[in-house]
């Protein structure tokens, strides 16, 4: 009976258009097939509107970013994407201070309906051995996930489930700048955000760049835009030189927005490292212009 309940919830999550499941479902159904892919973490997920890129470049675009995930998971998603979808012509990779950091946690609920897929199981098992058996004990993969379970049931009757779906993998934020939070953030991080480089992730990243070169995928690095005050307290030299060297070595387009005027205006940000919807619109248009002008 518990197996049956699990199968019903899985079925619902495999057909929903809601949240990350909607993305993964399209990906596994081979329905994305974009010519331009946007990759990154939250700094891509909430900041680059694929519709603006699509209209500006005239190429079907999809935001494949993984909110809150480091590069190894972003790369995993790309590899899964390439198994079921056609190869893109261009990848816009947003890099931020956490891109090269090692993964300590990931958003597990998005993988619940796909734990029968070998690649998914292997990927997650590398971080938590429980994922090797989680799919076999009934309902265990829904442990503490009552809302996800309910969403699975509701999605059988309503494609969007409880929650709405993302716009081509993009979720703009309407939030406004919060000065109190920013002051608190500066107190907690007097030297700015911690920039870490993991050798394992750096190797993955280099492989990814080589893959793009070999397969004639036009790769674009976008250094994440941040509120200007962060640059005054943070040492971004290692961050900048890593991506600058890599882009020179592999002839990758490499754009930095820290000289743009919008990074001085709080009205475009909701926190020091993320643009709100208005800022994201400007940023997305700037990306189009830079890519066009560069060519």
């Amino acid at each position: 009976m518990l197996h049956l309940l699990q199968a019903v919830a899985d079925y619902g999550l495999r057909r929903t258009t809601a949240l990350e499941w909607g993305d993964w479902n399209k990906l596994y159904a081979g329905e994305i097939n974009a010519e331009v892919l946007i990759m990154g973490s939250s700094t891509a997920f909430v900041q680059i509107d694929p519709t603006i890129i699509e209209e500006g470049l005239g190429m079907p675009t999809y935001n494949l970013a993984m909110n809150g995930h480091r590069f190894d998971f972003q790369y995993f998603k790309l590899k899964e994407y390439l198994k079921y979808n056609q190869r893109p012509k261009m990848i816009i990779q947003v890099v931020d201070y956490a891109t090269m950091d090692s993964t300590e946690s990931f958003f597990a609920p998005q993988f619940i309906p796909y734990l029968d897929k070998r690649a998914v199981k292997e990927k997650l098992s590398a971080y938590d051995k429980d994922y090797q058996w989680l799919n076999f004990i009934p309902l265990m993969k829904y442990k503490g996930r009552s809302r996800e379970f309910l969403n699975g049931f509701i999605s059988i009757f309503n494609d969007n489930g409880i929650w709405g779906s993302y716009k081509k993998g993009y979720l703009p934020r309407e939030n406004k700048w919060n000065e109190i939070e920013f002051t608190k953030y500066l107190e907690q991080n007097p030297n700015g955000p911690p920039i870490k480089f993991s050798k394992y992730i750096m190797n993955d990243f280099t492989r990814f760049v080589r893959y793009c070169n070999t397969n004639e995928i036009d790769l674009v690095f976008i250094k994440f835009p941040r509120y200007h005050q962060l640059d005054e307290i943070t040492d971004f030299s290692q961050f900048n030189s890593f991506y600058d060297q890599l882009s020179t070595m592999h002839t990758v387009k490499n754009f930095d927005f820290q000289s743009q005027s919008f990074i001085y205006k709080k009205k475009y940000f909701y926190n020091s490292t993320h643009l709100n919807k208005t800022g994201a619109n400007i940023f997305s248009k700037e990306i189009v212009d830079l890519i066009k002008n560069h060519d």
């Binding site: 009976m1 518990l2 265990m140 829904y142 503490g144 996930r145």
Partner: peptide
């Protein structure tokens, strides 16, 4: 009886915190 036991077990899994 069956519904009751399944319900309790299901809730313990789904609402586990």
């Amino acid at each position: 009886r069956g519904v009751y036991y399944i319900f309790l077990i299901m809730c313990m899994i789904l609402f586990y915190s």
